[in-house]
Amino acid sequence: MDSNSIRDSYDAVADVYAQGFTADLASKPLDRAMLAAFAEQIPNEGLVADVGCGPAQVACFLADLGVPVVGFDVSPGMVEVARTRRPGLDARVGSMLDLPLGSGELAGVVAFYSLIHLQAEERSSAYEEFARVLRPGGLVLAAFHAGQEVRHLDAWLDRPVSLDFFALRPEEVAAGLTAAGFAVEATLTRGPYPGEADTERAYLLARRLG
Rank of each mutant, 00 (worst) to 15 (best):
I116N: 04
L118M: 09
Q119H: 14
A120I: 13
E122L: 04
E122Q: 15
R123L: 14
S124Q: 15
S125C: 05
A126L: 11
Y127C: 11
E129V: 00
F130S: 02
F130R: 03
A131E: 14
A131F: 10
L134H: 06
R135E: 15
P136M: 13
P136L: 12
G137P: 01
G138Q: 09
G138E: 13
V140P: 00
V140N: 05
L141E: 08
A142T: 13
A143D: 08
F144H: 01
H145P: 00
A146P: 03
G147I: 04
G147K: 05
H152F: 10
L153Q: 12
D154M: 03
A155D: 14
A155S: 14
A155M: 08
W156V: 03
W156I: 02
R159Q: 15
R159S: 04
R159E: 11
S162G: 06
S162L: 03
L163E: 00
L163W: 01
F165C: 01
A167P: 02
A167G: 07
P170C: 04
P170W: 14
E171M: 05
E171N: 09
E172M: 11
E172W: 12
V173S: 01
V173M: 03
A174Y: 08
A174D: 05
A174F: 03
A175P: 05
L177F: 09
A179F: 14
A179Y: 14
A179E: 15
A179G: 15
A180Y: 08
G181A: 07
G181Q: 08
F182A: 00
F182G: 01
A183E: 15
A183F: 10
E185P: 02
E185S: 03
E185R: 13
A186R: 10
T187N: 04
L188F: 09
